[in-house]
């Protein structure tokens, strides 16, 4: 193993890791927003919205994220969507992650006992007041861990945008392999950095989960 080489290229990988982190944060934010919208649609009292929500979930969970990225980035210009690689990466992965988060958020909401909403309604709260005062605060606590799983998957999925040439960790490893012919060292370096990012995120999620539990 060429430790010297690894030490020399290491700073370039750190820069790339920063790009991976930026990608992850933006993707997570977009995914959460899409997940909130998707869950609202799936739980709507309007059949059309429920259908749109269900279609969104099955479409984006039912096809490879890589194909979704390719359609957006390579196919987009054909139908007038011009995005640079980073934008396409965030939007493509964000919409994909949103489909998974839709199901996480919806699952947490429907797992709240229906007696909770009933109790709120009998006090005179409106449907919306019962939702935001009673159901959502409880569901939010239940969501933290499964959303953490979604986040973990999403961070690893950012490796896919190497295929549309976003200069993040995986792409950087591949580029240095081209000039060094040392795939073992380069992928190992990338892997370690992914692990650090994911470990830190996991700890943060566990901390948040502990914090929001009711004593």
């Amino acid at each position: 193993m060429d430790i010297d080489l690894m030490m020399r290229v290491y700073p370039f990988f750190l820069t790339a890791a920063w790009t991976t982190i930026q990608l992850s944060v933006l993707t997570a934010l977009l995914g959460l927003s899409m997940g909130a919208l998707g869950a609202s649609a799936r739980l709507s009292r309007f059949a059309l919205l429920r259908f749109v929500g269900a279609a969104y979930v099955s479409l984006f969970r039912g096809t490879p994220a890589l194909i979704q990225l390719f359609i957006l980035y390579f196919g987009g210009p054909q139908i007038g969507i011009q995005l640079d690689a980073f934008e396409a990466g965030v939007i493509g992965l964000g919409i994909n992650a949103g489909a998974y988060m839709t199901e996480t958020i919806r699952g947490a909401i429907i797992s709240i006992d229906k007696g909770q909403r009933e109790a709120a309604r009998t006090l005179g709260l409106s449907q919306w007041q019962a939702t935001y005062k009673i159901v959502l605060p409880q569901a939010a606590r239940l969501m933290v861990r499964p959303l953490g799983v979604n986040l973990n998957m999403l961070i690893k999925a950012t490796a896919l945008v190497a295929a549309i040439s976003v200069v993040e960790l995986t792409y950087t490893a591949q580029r240095y392999i081209g000039s060094t012919y040392k795939p073992f060292e380069m992928f190992l370096l990338a892997g370690v950095l992914y692990m650090i990012i994911i470990y830190a995120t996991g700890r943060a999620v566990a901390w948040l989960d502990r914090r929001v539990q009711i004593t």
Binding site: D113, R121, T122, L123, G124, Q138, I214
Partner: peptide
């Protein structure tokens, strides 16, 4: 109905207290 329900208290078998 929200207005009406404000005047009718209800107590359930399983309490349905808000746990949070």
């Amino acid at each position: 109905i929200n207005e009406m329900r404000q005047h009718v208290g209800m107590v359930f078998q399983h309490f349905n207290l808000f746990p949070h």
